[in-house]
Amino acid sequence: MSKQKKTLLLSIVFLVIMIILTYLPVAILTVYSFTESKTIGVWNGFSFELYKELFTDDEILTALKNTLIIGLSASALAVVLGTLAAIGIHSMKKAPRMVMESINQITMVNADIVTAIGFMLLFLFVIFIPNDYASLIIAHTVICTPYVIMSVLPRLSQLNPNVYEAGLDLGATPVRALFSIILPQLIPAVIAGFALAFTISLDDFTISTFVSSSVETIPRFLYNKLKVKGVMPVLRALSVFIMAAVFVVLIVINFFSMRTERKKQQIEKNLGGAK
């Protein structure tokens, strides 16, 4: 008993140390976003000055707008393409399924820089797309879709195929059955896939850098500013703003998935009672 307690205590101490190591840099960043001082270690008094600067800086606001346009369009396209592909892959026989899954894996394991120069060569020499937004949205859609598939595919294999068959037996066309039976059951997985796709798009600067030099996004802006000496203080406010936004999204998603999980359990319990 006492030995078990000792292990528990040791585990907790170790976890606390690891959490501190993980969050200390982020905490310093957050604290110093509320002061104007140019250098870290000098506290110039509490102020929202950097945040004011953040929301009046045209360059940052344009980048933010571009990031949202590209991220949201690419995730939306990836969700449509990925969900359809997942349903298709799920119904496939072993050989074609292997092919599709391998293609999926190539995109996911490939290094960003290799994917990026592939796109660059493609857009330079094979397909000419006159609009930089369009080429960026295409590139982001391609790198995000595998994550949607990975999120939807496991859910599909959990579904009860009899419900779909019953729909068909009751006279629904396959399309109707798809829309009113399969898709509604996929919604939590599709939402998770959308969120995953969006964070992948939000994280990318390598591919954006090589595909388009004219459309500035937040990650590209960050990379270019961080590369030069003497980082602008406003980046601290920008970082905290992005982190806060991502955390809010994460909490919302978790809340929803927990609620659907609880609902599912409730329904299963009720069904059990009915039996």
Binding site: L29, Y223, L250
Partner: peptide
């Protein structure tokens, strides 16, 4: 889940 550049920036800052 947050941008990897932000993690690198946090490391630089700290």
């Amino acid at each position: 889940w947050i941008n990897s550049l932000l993690r690198i920036y946090a490391v630089q800052l700290f």
